[in-house]
Amino acid sequence: MIVVNTEMVPGKRIANTLGLVQGNTIRAKHFGRDIAAGLKNLVGGELTGYTELLTEARREAVERMIAQANQLGADAIVNVRFTTSAVTQGAAELYAYGTAVQLEQGAPEPMRVPEKL
């Protein structure tokens, strides 16, 4: 699955679009990380616990989006965007969405696609 956030797959032609695909996840931060972050907030610096949490959550959302695109039989997802919303205090929704497309198979293939995204 090619995942890009440009409007088309560079170097390929889009045969048809299959519609919007999306993935989301809502994550709450956990207590242990809060303590570490609270201490870090005294001296400043990166809150690695939260960074990992958000990276993990974002990956989850992307994976769900890709799973949906696979179901539709898509070759690629274009114009991928991310948003977040604050659901309650201390929890965030991460939402990834894009357009699933099928690519023209006959097009010249100068491009190698990563096996696993």
Partner: peptide, 20 residues
């Protein structure tokens, strides 16, 4: 577009807190 060999999404995430 002719010279493109591969493409993929890349990303970076960070959370930084400030001091007291």
């Amino acid at each position: 577009l002719q010279t493109i060999a591969a493409c993929a999404m890349v990303s970076g995430q960070v959370v930084i807190g400030t001091d007291y």
